[in-house]
Nucleic acid binder design. Structure first.
Lengths: 210, 210
DNA sequence: GTCTATATCTCGATAGAC
DNA sequence: GTCTATCGAGATATAGAC
């Protein structure tokens, strides 16, 4: 944790934090209720309110922490100045591996976005001011790769949209995707491993100069 | 409408239907409340319950109708046996044009997915039994294109995931995307027009045999 | 069909004992 | 720090007049 909650967490508080992530991811900021969170964390509602006076505080704390951690993971090994091929490779692999371990996180992002995205925006700015924003590195390296002829002329923002959309969909639309992607049901780990290869190959072929 | 609600709708019921789409898309199945829906439709809560006894019934009716209509739109002009290039072109253009006119629909799909996707699945099966499922045509035509050498060997399900993810993200993550895609804020129509070209070009270059 | 009024229930939040 | 008990707001849903 980086800011608001630097104190030592008790076991109960840790369980609360994890439970809140899950429930907010499934039900959203408004749909989630404190009883369900408390039950999942094996504490009472009163204890929940002891740690976080208001539900909104809990939501904001959970989102900020999870998002910052994830951006840190996603930007790992990404370096300004790397080739686009290497950047794409690292970006997709990091993102997909991270979300495979924590599939509820992309759901949490989406819920926040559907609910207006205000806290997301605030957190984004913090991440950017600390120079840990993976999307900035992605866009910068794409621009350089266009200039030096590695890839063709494309709008880097459009490209980023395609990459993120491709990586994230299996997690936010799992119940539906399971219906027309048999692989997702039979062996999820294998499907996601193939997904890494597929997205990286598809996108790189799509932009590289031959 | 195809089944459950074939009767003539009054003006009030139509307004209710539209309002419910909007509110369920933003707040989700659980977060949405009937007061907000009724207000937006300019009717009272009592009238809402006159048409749909329970909130859940309203939700299910709204989802089924909207999803079926959308699949009909998306599968327009798609024909079994078309080349993959033509299929991709039609699929992306139809989808993006439809969602540009009704940006809350992809939000409704994802809300349903986050809430378990049960009603989605039921509706999917209905659509498939009526042979109006655009995803089936997409996958079939991709398979044929692999066989006849138009495109390289790829998993059609992975490919579909990438296409849908790329097309849908701008609508479900708008508040965030607006932060790093300037074009989306300045001129949304232009951004989406460019998006069509970008996605079609990126994906086709990514799979075609040179 | 549409309304006002109200019953009933659930939720977030607090008080206060231990 | 964790609990039981409870308050009060706000939600869904219903009753019954027009």
């Amino acid at each position: 944790m980086t800011d608001s909650k630097t104190h030592k967490q008790t076991d109960a508080e840790k369980r609360l934090f994890v439970a809140a992530q899950q429930v907010f991811a499934k039900k959203g900021r408004f749909g989630a209720n404190t009883q369900e969170i408390a039950d999942l964390a094996n504490i009472t509602k009163a204890s929940l309110h002891y740690y976080y006076r208001r539900k909104e505080e809990l939501y904001a704390a959970v989102f900020r922490y999870a998002f910052k951690e994830s951006m840190l993971k996603t930007s790992e090994d990404l370096k300004l100045g790397d080739s686009f091929e290497s950047t794409l490779h690292t970006f997709c692999n990091n993102m997909l591996s991270h979300y495979e371990k924590h599939p509820h996180l992309p759901q949490l992002w989406l819920q926040e976005s559907l609910n207006g995205g205000q806290i997301w925006l605030e957190t984004c700015k913090e991440v950017e001011s600390e120079d840990r924003a993976p999307w900035r590195i992605f866009i910068e390296n794409a621009k350089s790769a266009i200039k030096n002829g590695e890839i063709k002329e494309v709008d880097p923002e459009q490209l980023l949209t395609s990459v993120v959309g491709s990586c994230v969909l299996p997690f936010v639309a799992e119940p539906i995707m399971a219906h027309f992607a048999d692989g997702l049901v039979e062996d999820k780990a294998k499907f996601l491993e193939e997904r890494k290869k597929h997205v990286i190959d598809l996108i790189y072929r799509g932009v590289k100069k031959e």
